[in-house]
Amino acid sequence: MSDRLELNKNLAQMLKGGVIMDVTTPEQARIAEAAGACAVMALERIPADIRAAGGVSRMSDPKMIKGIQEVVSIPVMAKCRIGHFAEAQILQAIEIDYIDESEVLSPADDKYHIDKTKFDVPFVCGAKDLGEALRRINEGASMIRTKGEPGTGDVVQAVRHMRMMQSEIRRIGSMAEDELYETAKSLAVPFELVKYVHDNKKLPVVNFAAGGVATPADAALMMQLGAEGVFVGSGIFKSGNPEKRAAAIVKAVTNFTDAKLLAELSEDLGEAMVGINEQEIALLMAERGK
């Protein structure tokens, strides 16, 4: 199993510096791949529509996911509900490349996350601080993303979560070794994980930004804040010109410090996703699953 975990962490390493895009149809998947997505997330409804529709939101129809697997050569990810290990088993059975145990869907378990060490396929999980990230890694996640606030087009929460993680990593990095035991206790994670963060000044797995990224500038901001890549959900296919916006975000992630290039990439992208501010929403998905 530890070999498998290593291989799964390795796949996340291959995705670094890339953009993972939410798609709901094979056609959108083709557009995303052509625009330079390093992976696609197959789901029936993008987060903005999940938010608008309300009700219980579940794993997508496997047939729909398979339809997307057939048309692209890049990795295909799909979401299961937090704690819903049967949905995860189904996704593993259709040989998904990565499972997102996601707060975007309605949680199936309000106490326990999936024991991801029981699976061969890799898992990515959301986190809003270092404690959540390390708890998910301890459960077997081989990749982490900020939760942000999905389906809003508002980057403020992704920024908050990334800043929080990075500042906690810096704090642990500067601690004396004998202080790490207390930190492990307060974060409710094993000492070894805290020690890894202390020694390496980073998470033991790849860390992407997600939730609210809508423009090339948003993507560049997250990369400069320490993200190793970016998930874009509703931001692309809820915008005026998905192809162009998607391609611009891909380039912004590669050259995230070149402001002149970012200016060019930000030109004429058509209408951005309208978005909603965090004060205007009733449901904070980031509060699901701690």
Binding site: M14, K16, G17, G18, E33, G36, I74, A247, K251
Partner: peptide
């Protein structure tokens, strides 16, 4: 390096 050849190929061309 390793990564996605479709992405790197596209960026090689466009950059």
């Amino acid at each position: 390096p390793g990564g996605e050849s479709t992405v790197q190929g596209k960026l090689l061309r466009e950059l």
